[in-house]
Nucleic acid binder design. Sequence first.
DNA 1: CGCCATTTTTACATCGTTGGAACAACGTTG
DNA 2: CAACGTTGTTCCAACGATGTAAAAATGGCG
Lengths: 340, 340
Amino acid sequence: MAVTLKDVATLAGVSVKTVSNVVNGYAFVKPENRRRVEEALAATGYRPNVGARNLRRGRTGFLALMVPELSIPYFGELAGLVITAAQRRGWSVLIEQTQGTRTRERATVDSLGPHLVDGALVHPEALEAGDFPDPGMGIPMVLLGEHAVDVELDRVAIDNVQAAHSAVSHLVSLGRRRIAAIGVNPRRGTASLRVAGYTAALTDAGLSVVDSLMEPADKYHRANGAAAMKRLLSLPEPPDAVFCFNDLLAVGALRSVAERGLRVPEDIAIVGFDNTEESAFSLPSLTTISPDKAAIAEAAIDLVNGRIIGTENASPREVQPPFSLEIRESTAGVSSPAGR
Amino acid sequence: MAVTLKDVATLAGVSVKTVSNVVNGYAFVKPENRRRVEEALAATGYRPNVGARNLRRGRTGFLALMVPELSIPYFGELAGLVITAAQRRGWSVLIEQTQGTRTRERATVDSLGPHLVDGALVHPEALEAGDFPDPGMGIPMVLLGEHAVDVELDRVAIDNVQAAHSAVSHLVSLGRRRIAAIGVNPRRGTASLRVAGYTAALTDAGLSVVDSLMEPADKYHRANGAAAMKRLLSLPEPPDAVFCFNDLLAVGALRSVAERGLRVPEDIAIVGFDNTEESAFSLPSLTTISPDKAAIAEAAIDLVNGRIIGTENASPREVQPPFSLEIRESTAGVSSPAGR
DNA sequence: CGCCATTTTTACATCGTTGGAACAACGTTG
DNA sequence: CAACGTTGTTCCAACGATGTAAAAATGGCG
């Protein structure tokens, strides 16, 4: 059924290897034969058997991308970019979902044998240092969006502390004084970094860090943001601004504020994180930290690709793609559009 | 580096095939040997070389999922469910993005050789009947979300006509009389079906179908919805309700309505399509058609799996998973929450 | 024309796994 | 005890591609 090199060879009247040579662009093939082979290739519609080729080459041609859930917009967007970047380098991407649980993340990380994939991009949520297989043992791995875990791997992530700092400083510059945070979670590496940036910015502004304004969130879904915001609004002294650790939390927060009949940003300013497409269209649109997702995807692919191709055993590299603060209605809006 | 069957065999003091038999659960292996082999397996941490196994078996163990873009929430959510469903049957999923262009869809569809993947779930946007490779020739393919193209393949999609009909009927039942549609697009199969349901529902209600109320959309992104809504709002007689062909268009429409200072649903009621997570949290939340996405994913995986495993050559099957109308604030809300 | 150097092609082994057949060990039965 | 069926194991070939090395064709030169 499927066309093999042998079929092409028979048709062209040459050996299998000569066909292989043509396919792989080997220089020394008589023009006459090359022409015949190429015709045969075209006539049969030959396609290399990737499995066999990789068996021989000791590669699989696949990379794994481990994320919590594709249904979370940030990961959907990131995965799309990763797939595109990978394709440019000739890799196919396999996606594994972990729901952000440590158990499943651990299971995934050490099921990534060298046979299934040649390398992996790992976006952990709850993984700890000891959970990783010995680097050097398994396949090349690149850590995404995570700078807190202490393990000898390449990493790609924006400067979370700096980003959080600039988000909160923005709120400070608008004159806000009771600035809350939603998404505090000691088990998440990035959350701790964002908390650090948050408290640093407050301190730098001469504001005090108030425990009751630091709302935890287990999952970073819209519902969690809504619930956290509700709690903040029923404080004796509610906040006048909130920094949410991702856009989904912020979207949830927007809803709770609206349900209370308060206005964004007049009564409460809100900043998100991730600049997902959704944040540009929420009502009001969200001011948010915008990591350069395309740069993240590129860098990550570059790193695994380098580790796989290159035989070099250099020490782990750390790439920090740029980010920016996207200022929109939720902090700078003239008024909540629906509000008047 | 990697452990092979041979290594395990040497350690256990048996032949390679015996180890293979143990690994594959072959019944007749002497308990003593089985024990030895199992110990050796554990000691070496053996993992089968998927490539080699599949080379031998003539399978790759991979399925492809072709979608326009993962960054579109519906596809992100669907892809997540497909991956989960596939995993349960032992398949890994490879995602291909086409940006919804016919060129790339065609390229993808016929690059899906039998070597890379054993089957494919295809969610076309612009593909036409002739673009498909001869069914029977290539790998099993299942068509997703598309009932208009005439080709001999298994299909999974909700009843789009019925769904659109019920969305519009809902608006009619609320007393709306000038009901617009956003997302008309003759090149999209599903769009035509939804138009059919839309016009049928209007006719059934004794309302006339007004051309100027049928807004086209090239892409189904938020920005397109916003633009289309702007045009509708500047009609001499603007609509009092809008049926959007997906949630993103609806979210864009919400924004344009808000920017005009009008209220949803009081001035204009809006219905979306897909029930993406975003739609439950928009302000106001969106009434939307909710296809059972998990059922879609399950059915699709079941179908390819059946085609691949089974040697039967049955005629194409068509599965219609259920859908429901999720009624929320954008049609039934007491008032736009931020509005008061 | 014979020989060597270069270009071009081929045969063969190999990657790790599994199907099939051959083979060995075993207890049972006539 | 020979013949037999059952159970367990091993050997060999094969999946499709490519690296290696050897063989064949070609060309140049003395």
